[in-house]
């Protein structure tokens, strides 16, 4: 659940970028950090990074500003994608309000995508949450490689693999070039704020 600071009239929502290793989660955050207006972002922090692998997590705080007297902030986190770091993923998922699942469009990553999504569902269940209730957006990353030498999965195929039961918004993207990154952020932010505000009202 979002952290609500009543004294400061502030709601902090937590959005986690989840997905298989080397899928582009950190690249999403780095792009956002570079491209966002400076009045909307804080400093980006990467905790324990080795090479191009996130071993712990990345963090980027964003401020939406005051909405009807309430200060709304969104904290973006990434998780380490590698299978062995499941304990860290569970830790980062605690209190999550919204998830972006960054799937790798490379054909060779098909199984890894499914495995990672299953891992997400499992970890969410362990947190006593239902994946169908929590805001979720699928991002099909690395679409810029379409037409190149490396075979990619088609959008339809990825939808079939990952979104046939979930039926959540899915967006093609290229985190490296920035295509679709802001659309993903906007979609998940809107869904998350709806989710959190409804929870606040329902309390």
């Amino acid at each position: 659940m979002a952290f609500i600071d009543l004294a400061r009239k502030e709601i902090n929502c937590k959005v986690v970028f989840y997905g298989p290793g080397r899928g582009g989660k950190t690249t999403n955050l780095i792009y956002l950090h570079k491209a966002l207006k400076s009045n909307a972002k804080g400093k980006m922090v990467s905790i324990d990074t080795k090479g191009d692998r996130t071993l712990f997590f990345d963090f980027l705080p964003l401020a939406i500003g005051k909405i009807r007297g309430l200060d709304i902030k969104i904290q973006l986190y990434t998780v380490p994608g590698q299978v062995m770091y499941n304990a860290t993923r569970k830790l980062v998922l605690k209190g999550v309000d919204g998830i972006v699942f960054v799937a790798d469009s490379l054909s060779v990553q098909k199984e890894k995508n499914i495995e990672s999504l299953e891992n997400l569902i499992e970890n969410i269940q362990e947190e006593n949450m239902d994946i169908k209730n929590i805001p979720l957006v699928l991002q099909y990353n690395k679409r810029d490689m379409d037409g190149g030498k490396i075979p990619l999965l088609s959008i339809e195929e990825m939808d079939q693999d990952l979104n046939s039961t979930l039926k959540v918004p899915s967006l093609p993207a290229s985190a490296l070039k920035g295509t679709g990154v802001f659309d993903t952020l906007k979609t998940i932010s809107k869904l998350t704020i709806r989710y959190v505000s409804q929870k606040v009202v329902g309390q």
Binding site: I30, H33, K43, M44, V45, S46, I47, D48, T49, K50, G51, L55
Partner: peptide, 8 residues
């Protein structure tokens, strides 16, 4: 590219 807290 090393461990610990880093500001980008």
């Amino acid at each position: 590219k090393t461990g610990g807290f880093w500001d980008h």
